[in-house]
């Protein structure tokens, strides 16, 4: 009887889920499939002759060939470097702060306020932050003037230097995100069974031992989550590098801070068939690389033993 009843109501459950799936298929799945499809339409221009062919032309010419000048791989390299430069310090500092804020022995006062302030940059519009930092580091920007007075930088300032732009962009990302990661890790540490720490303390374990033997291993699922979501977000990095320095100064013929999403936008905006195929093929490269990186992280941080939680 009950079984029949729940099946009878089941059709409502199905109906309630329909809008979500309908919109998902139209605005997310179809675009993804279409992007794949479009990446296979290669438009060649030979003088006035425009020929369209279906196949791997875009990949042959723009991704692996000479037509794109390898720009996609350079942009991919820059994107990954930017992500690593911000993520490694970010996760280390967040772990340290999370360990401090949850430490029972050395209780810090006011850690609620620290969290509020450290998270604050994350909520502010990235576009605004990028232009703000651009203003601070411009040739007459306040931070450049300070650096100049100490002789840390020449009279042209930071922005014409590729490496300086890269480091500043990575710093902005770090600065925007470490508060978020720290709060997530704090919540993770507080979710660990306190009796484990009590037992460890009875056995005379030091804070360091507790951190490496209890906290870190049990934090693995959350570290995995942080790593994977940060990689997906980081590889799609656009606002900060685009608005901070418009792709950066050209060093050795290459824009020094142009990310993959900036390239994709550039060719999508132009909008000709030729450029759309090119943008689509770059999108597919980014999609595949993102999937591979997430899967690798997922595998290497996979928790085999699942006790203590």
């Amino acid at each position: 009887m009950t079984k029949k009843k729940s099946v009878e109501h089941g059709k409502y459950g199905f109906m309630f889920a329909v809008p979500f799936f309908l919109i998902f298929f139209i605005f997310q799945l179809y675009p993804l499939i279409y992007t794949f499809y479009n990446s296979l339409i290669y438009t060649a221009k030979n003088g006035r002759n425009i020929t369209e062919s279906f196949g791997l032309g875009n990949f042959k010419n723009y991704v692996f060939g000479n037509l794109g000048g390898g720009e996609i791989w350079k942009a991919l390299g820059i994107t990954i470097v930017l992500w690593i430069l911000n993520f490694i310090p970010q996760i280390l500092l967040s772990l340290l702060l999370a360990a401090w804020f949850t430490d029972i022995k050395y209780k810090l006062k006011g850690n609620g306020i620290y969290k509020v302030i450290m998270y604050m940059p994350n909520i502010i519009t990235a576009a605004t932050i990028a232009v703000l930092f651009y203003s601070l580091f411009d040739i007459n920007g306040p931070l450049t003037l300070i650096a100049k007075s100490f002789g840390w930088v020449g009279k042209d300032g930071f922005l014409y230097k590729g490496w300086a732009s890269l480091i500043i962009i990575a710093f902005i990302q770090f600065w925007m995100w470490y508060g978020n990661t720290m709060i997530v890790l704090c919540a993770g540490i507080m979710g660990i069974n306190p009796s484990l720490y009590e037992a460890a303390m009875v056995d005379g374990a030091t804070s360091k031992q507790q951190f490496f033997k209890i906290t870190l291993p049990l934090l693995k699922p959350i570290l995995q989550y942080t790593l994977v979501t940060s990689a997906i977000g980081g590889l799609q990095m656009y606002d900060i590098p685009a608005l901070f320095n418009d792709g950066g100064p050209v060093v050795n013929g290459v824009n020094s801070t142009t990310t993959v999403m900036m390239l994709i936008k550039k060719y999508t905006t132009v909008g000709s068939a030729q450029n759309l195929g090119r943008a689509a093929s770059y999108s597919i490269v980014l999609f595949v690389v993102t999937m591979i990186i997430s899967l690798v992280f997922y595998k290497i941080t996979q928790d085999k033993t699942n006790d203590g939680r």
């Binding site: 605005f27 997310q28 179809y30 675009p31 993804l32 499939i33 279409y34 992007t35 479009n38 994977v228 997906i232 590889l235 799609q236 656009y238 999403m261 994709i264 936008k265 999508t268 759309l276 943008a279 689509a280 999108s283 597919i284 980014l286 999609f287 993102t290 997430s294």
Partner: peptide, 11 residues
Amino acid sequence: MIPTQVSVVGF
């Protein structure tokens, strides 16, 4: 887990 912005061409 699907990165959404990569499919702008289709969007």
